[in-house]
């Protein structure tokens, strides 16, 4: 129920009409720089009015309380308050960088992130393509409405269910024992842990992640397939030339956003399985922050680690976005 992390991951879609590169679009638009600002404001008053409520939201409910993050530069004590806690400059950051456990958490986080990127990230797209290729719409609808369900299972239950099947006394190992074979240590093996974690993520979120791609695929002009078929393109070529281009910009945007979020690989999942494999294998940045910020009561270190995460995320987004532009994609924001 508290999978905040995963709820956000696959939140996207795009119509992705292909064959219109950003360049083409750029040329189609009138140049704006020559028009004086006053006139631009007047010309765009509707747009500015539409922008206002959303902008107001971000200012009030994000930027105002964000000021509280000053605690990263303080020796913050909740009952003294933000204003009166002593300012300590960057010493919280120095302390953070001097902690070997912090770097271990970073290393684990990057390992899990890389695995998720390689194994999990493409999975929803692959599933969407598979589901989309099903001919019978009843089957398609049935499959669609099954595979997204695990997203709504809490991590506690996911771990319990995995235990039920793969645990030391689970179905698999009881079967092996009954047939005179050695049981396999899957759930408490630190070496298998990265794969286990990724498998759990795939199981839980492949179907939920798929929805976005389905929405993108829904906008593919079906007559393009017909035209391609008439031109002699076979199944695979049609997928390559019609289907994939339709989801390309969505995929790239999701990828850029995922890279920005590279230091978040989940939280509850790791906290729950920490004792099973030990902190050396299961400590990630978010659990590190949890222990320091909440369990050890060191709010300032927690906030500092949060800021470090954000800065690295910003660099990743910036880099990935530039890369996307280099390939002629729009990424998440334009130059």
């Amino acid at each position: 129920m508290i999978s905040l992390k995963t709820e956000r991951r696959p939140d996207t879609t795009s119509a992705a009409h292909e064959a219109r590169t950003p360049k083409a679009r750029k040329q189609a638009r009138p140049p704006t720089s020559r028009v004086p600002l006053g006139r631009r404001l007047r010309n765009n008053w509707v747009m500015l009015a539409l922008m206002a409520p959303g902008l107001l939201f971000f200012v009030v409910f994000f930027y105002v309380p964000m000021l509280g993050n000053i605690v990263a530069f303080e020796d913050y004590q909740p009952f003294i308050g933000f204003k009166d806690s002593a300012l300590v400059g960057f010493s919280n950051f120095q302390e953070l960088f001097a902690d070997a456990a912090f770097w271990e958490a970073v290393r684990n986080t990057l390992l899990f992130a890389a695995l998720q990127l390689v194994l999990y990230f493409p999975a929803p797209l692959a599933l969407a393509l598979l589901v989309n290729s099903l001919v019978g719409s009843k089957v398609r609808r049935f499959v669609q409405s099954i595979v997204y369900l695990p997203h709504f299972i809490s991590w506690v239950l996911v771990v319990a269910l995995f235990q039920q099947v793969l645990g030391g006394a689970g179905l698999l190992n009881n079967f092996l024992r009954a047939h005179g074979m050695d049981p396999l240590d899957i759930m408490t093996n630190p070496h298998a842990f990265p794969l286990l974690i990724t498998a759990q993520v795939i199981w839980k979120d492949i179907g939920w992640g798929m929805i976005i791609y389905l929405a993108a695929l829904a906008n593919v002009d079906q007559s393009l397939y017909e035209a391609a078929a008439v031109d002699g393109a076979n199944r695979w070529r049609r997928m390559w030339h019609v289907t994939l281009p339709a989801v390309r910009s969505v995929t790239i945007m999701l990828l850029v956003l995922r890279l920005g979020d590279v230091l978040s690989v989940g939280f509850e999942q790791f906290l729950l399985q920490r004792d099973a494999v030990g902190p050396r294998a299961a400590e990630v940045l978010d659990t590190y922050v949890y222990y320091h910020g909440v369990v050890y009561g060191d709010w300032s270190i927690g906030a500092a680690a949060g800021l470090v995460k954000g800065v690295i995320g910003a660099l990743m987004i910036w880099g990935a976005n530039r890369l996307a532009h280099a390939f002629g994609e729009q990424g998440v924001y334009s130059k």
Partner: peptide
């Protein structure tokens, strides 16, 4: 979503 302090304590 990203305020892991919230998140973690909630959890």
């Amino acid at each position: 979503r990203r305020s892991f302090l919230n998140l973690s304590t909630a959890v």
